Simulated scan of single mutants.
Amino acid sequence: MKFKKISTLCIGITFILGGCMNSAPENQQEYSATTKANSHESLIRVQDYTGQGYALDGGQATAKIAEAHHEEIEKAVKAFFLDKYKTKVKVHNIVGALNAASVFVESEGEPHFYTYAVVPIDVKNKQVMADKVWSEEGQVEDAIRTGIYAMVYSEEFKNLDQYLKEFTTEHNLIGLTKEAVENVGGNGYSTPYYYISISPDAFGINLSKIYLENPDQSKTEWEKILMNQKMNEKSIDITIQLFMKNKNVEPDPSIIEQISKDIKKMNGLPLGIYSMLLHGNMIGKRTATGSKDNSLDSEEIIKDK
């Protein structure tokens, strides 16, 4: 099952930046206090959530520094993506973290994807280390692969989008707001209803490497590249995440069952392993996740040729 995989990026970033705690004893007291204070985070209706209140452990000391150096951070992150990943990005959100700022970005044009970078911050001297921007290993490469996949199979994704739009309307469901996806998503090719992750071995070639060597290839050129490769559908994860539209309404198991049945029998959908997550109407402000005790998940469904 993929329920444990649910995730917004907060889990990964908290772990990665939390790992810096031992090398920064001056922030350990603040880190512990922040963790304890947020053990019972406030909730908000998902349709009202745009990322407000999102926080990372240790971010109290860096949030104000990051805000004061917003332009410097934005400029450094844009240069980082252009230099290392040959991609122009727009910056949507900058969030304080332990000894750093986490910066959520969206690629401009195609391939389209969301991801993030980390800018180290010297808390003691209140300085932003703009020349030391970094990204989690494999994170951006995964995002690039998802963007290429969605671009090449755009018709199949349109079919999935149309199905989910009709299904959510019919069953009184809702997805994340577009602003939440932009500000706290960071999950590759994403929509308010789903996000994708693709392993490096999905096509038998190093897709992200080919992109870095020639990022300006057209959709037609990418189609030729992928059509000549054997696809490993089990290396493509498509996670559908939905919420009950009305407050105080429990997630309905029959909804998960119906989506599973529909995905199994439908033709013309993107290939991959599908999993479904269904939450109540509320989402955590701090963690940007709807995962709660009453959340439901499905068995994996493999869509292959």
Rank of each mutant, 00 (worst) to 15 (best):
K158Q: 15
M21F: 04
D122V: 05
Y189R: 05
Y211D: 02
A55D: 03
G96V: 06
T191N: 06
E182P: 02
K90H: 05
E108Y: 06
E221N: 12
E182G: 04
K86Q: 11
A61H: 01
A24D: 12
Q47A: 06
T169D: 14
V89L: 08
S235P: 01
V91Q: 06
A37T: 14
L9F: 00
L278T: 02
A33N: 15
G175M: 04
K178G: 09
E155K: 11
K285D: 12
Q241C: 06
L212H: 06
E72H: 05
D252Q: 11
I283S: 04
E182Y: 06
T220M: 10
I6T: 04
V181C: 04
V249G: 05
A37G: 13
S298M: 12
E141C: 07
A66S: 11
T34Q: 15
Y189N: 03
E182V: 04
D161A: 13
Q139K: 02
H92G: 06
S23H: 10
S32G: 07
L43Q: 12
I198Y: 02
N99L: 09
Y189T: 03
V77P: 03
T169A: 13
M227E: 15
N99C: 12
P111Q: 08
C10L: 00
N125L: 14
A37E: 11
Y163M: 13
N99T: 10
I236F: 07
V184Y: 01
A24T: 07
N267A: 14
I148T: 05
P192K: 07
N172D: 13
G51E: 03
G18K: 01
A143D: 00
N267I: 10
R145M: 09
G188Q: 00
E300R: 08
K209Q: 15
D201W: 11
E156C: 11
I11E: 01
E41C: 09
P215E: 06
E136T: 00
I238A: 05
N183H: 09
T34Y: 08
V118Q: 00
D57A: 04
N267W: 09
Y211N: 07
E250N: 07
G268E: 05
K132R: 15
K305G: 13
M244Q: 05
Q229K: 15
G59C: 10
L278P: 01
N22R: 10
A76S: 13
T14V: 04
A143Y: 00
D201T: 13
M151R: 03
M282Y: 06
S39Q: 12
Y274W: 12
L271V: 11
K88T: 07
A33K: 14
E136M: 01
P215C: 07
G186V: 00
E155W: 08
P120Q: 15
K178A: 14
L271W: 08
V46L: 14
K4A: 10
H279F: 09
L176D: 03
Q217P: 04
E30F: 13
S208E: 10
D48V: 09
N281Q: 13
G204E: 08
E71W: 09
S107F: 04
F15T: 00
A63Q: 07
A101V: 09
S218K: 11
